[in-house]
Design a protein around this nucleic acid. Structure first.
Length: 518
RNA sequence: GCUCCCUUCGUCUAGUGGUUAGGACACUGGCCUCUCACGUCGGCAACAGGGGUUCGAAUCCCCUAGGGAGCGCCA
């Protein structure tokens, strides 16, 4: 019980039915109900309340890295009684897709990461971005640039050759380019001084303005760029804490400069380290599941994934298992580690198994059905599914595995597991099997109970003057197909009398055939 | 190339100048036992390297190495 000792002192025990039936596990079908209208209207909310946002770009699925960032944003907002907003950064019209948006919403819903506002779509806020850009232009804080891609490319190559960092040289800064000629708009970055990113995780990170250049904030097609739209949104949406991947740390000084040009105070920043694959390399498709809904499909419980994710880069003493309530209470963004961490499926499996065996069987019943269906099994054709779950939950790491190891309760298996049959279905097992079969046949259906079954097996062992194992193991292989299952009495109860007799006959035939071969 | 970030068992981490460097997963040995699993008891295993500062450094400073990110009309 050591591992669970942490709950003894907590007000909110982890495995309460309330936690597991709290409606966090609906499928994506309900997502659409969540999509309120997305045109953000600035409101006069109290400036002091914590507001975080998760701002994915819809160019793929919600992957585990994004999910953890979203979780941190969610936890931080909840901890401080603030709001968590979801914003879809779809300004890249080429790569953004509606399917990706749906996949992200589906992932958020499955994980139960409820947002208070949004989703807001940046593509619906272009007017606002353009107004900000025009204002910057009017105030001389931005300028038009008509440098050709060729000139820019040559500049880059020359600078690299001179071992310099490639930067825009300000060529168009003083030129007065007509608004009618094709152009982009660049932000006039301060030429000198230092911008300090006061990061909640990294600490103070100073950047020299001389390292930065005049970045493009409006493309030639009129669309605003990322660094501009994020800044405008974060300001308009009154985001107080920007929690995001540390690949954005280098963008932050530029964003702070734009924010200041707009007359806003920068929010607090927290750059969380990235998640690596098992092998320490950047997470990618070849590491298997990267999309969170793939974990759902593979039979992981959302609370297990969340628990796994929260412990990646964060910890609270020696505690490993956290309910959502405990995470909200204990999590603090400032406690997050600086170093990247590797995703370890073994540990996720362990957590999932822990949650599986402590979960309410009624809920697992519901979640397990699709996995059984996938195997072509209809639970109505056999024992109560909750009974099977109670017997098997500690034996499976995932719902998928739980379905696989429980299939024998609902249908005859095709073949014996080779190693198990070889070891247990031998000539020496014939007599015990025949004896036990005869005893079972005499049992009335109403005597097919756990107690009677236990006694019957024990009596056969006694009669034959052999160990329990010499009877139970051949019997187990006979009725399950392999040498692993719940206790033999429980297993018999689940399989039922008819199937038991039928399968023992099959095992006896197998032994006979095998004996003939030898 | 330049700028910035990072570095404790295989992995996730505890640790904030004095610890036999703790826990968890994995691996492994025992117990429990009709099997498997659970549970339980034990074992293996780490401060990237080098210089300082200090009576004393995983902890503070510097250098090196290794890893990562950014330097786009991507986000």
């Amino acid at each position: 019980m050591q591992k669970w000792a942490c709950f003894e002192n907590s007000l909110q025990p982890l495995f309460t039915p309330a936690l597991f039936s709290s409606g966090n596990f609906q499928t994506a079908r309900n997502c659409t109900a969540k999509i309120r209208h997305s045109l953000f209207q600035p409101t006069d909310s109290h400036p002091m309340t914590v507001r975080t946002r998760f701002a994915p770009s819809p160019t793929g699925y919600l992957h585990v890295g994004g999910a953890r960032t979203a979780l941190f944003c969610y936890l931080y907002a909840r901890k401080h009684g603030g709001q968590f907003v979801l914003r879809i950064e779809d300004t890249d019209l080429e790569r953004s897709t509606a399917e990706s948006v749906n996949a992200i919403l589906e992932g958020m819903t499955w994980l139960g990461l409820d947002y208070d506002e949004g989703p807001f779509y940046q593509t619906q806020r272009f007017d606002r971005y353009n107004a900000v850009i025009d204002d910057l232009l009017a105030r001389g804080l931005a300028y038009r640039c008509d440098c050709s891609k060729e000139r820019l490319e040559k500049l880059r190559v020359d600078q690299m050759a001179r071992k310099q960092k490639p930067r825009y040289d300000g060529h168009c800064c003083q030129r007065q380019i007509d608004a009618n000629t094709p152009h982009v708009i660049r932000f006039k970055n301060p030429p000198d001084g230092v911008v300090v990113v006061d990061d909640l995780i990294r600490g103070r990170v100073p950047f020299a303005n001389s390292e930065l250049d005049d970045l493009i904030i409006r493309r030639s097609d009129g669309a605003p760029t990322y660094n501009l739209s994020v800044v405008v949104d974060d300001a308009d949406m009154r985001i107080t804490h920007v929690i995001r991947g540390d690949d954005h740390l280098n963008n932050t000084p530029r964003q702070i400069n734009i924010l200041k040009a707009m007359g806003h105070e920068p929010p607090r920043y927290a750059h969380v380290p990235m998640i690596l694959g098992d092998d320490g390399a950047r997470l990618s498709k070849r590491h298997g599941a990267v999309s969170v809904v793939a974990y759902r499909d593979q039979g992981y419980l959302p609370e297990a994934l969340l628990n796994y994710l929260v412990r990646l880069g964060w910890s609270h003493g020696d505690q490993e298992v956290f309910s959502i309530e405990q995470m909200i209470e204990l999590f603090d963004i400032g406690d997050v580690n600086k170093a990247a961490s590797a995703f370890n499926t073994d540990k996720l499996d362990w957590l999932n198994q822990q949650y599986l065996q402590h979960a309410d069987p009624q809920r697992i019943d519901r979640l397990l059905r699709p996995h059984l269906g996938h195997l072509g099994i209809d639970p109505a054709t056999g024992p109560a599914l909750t009974a099977v779950i109670k017997a098997q939950a500690a034996r499976a790491k995932t719902l998928t595995e739980l379905a696989e190891i429980s299939a024998f309760c609902y249908r005859d298996f095709d073949e014996f597991d080779e190693a198990s049959a070889k070891k247990h279905l031998r000539l020496i097992a014939r007599e015990p099997l025949e004896k036990i079969r005869a005893a079972f046949e005499l049992l009335a259906n109403e005597d097919w109970t756990i107690e009677t079954l236990k006694h019957t097996v024990e009596r056969v062992a006694e009669t034959l003057q052999i160990n329990m194992g010499k009877v139970a193991q051949p019997l187990r292989v006979a009725i399950v197909g392999r040498a692993a299952s719940p206790g033999i009495d429980e297993t018999l109860l689940l399989v039922g009398k008819d199937a038991t007799l039928r399968r023992i006959d099959k095992a006896l035939a197998y032994i006979a055939a095998r004996g003939a071969e030898m």
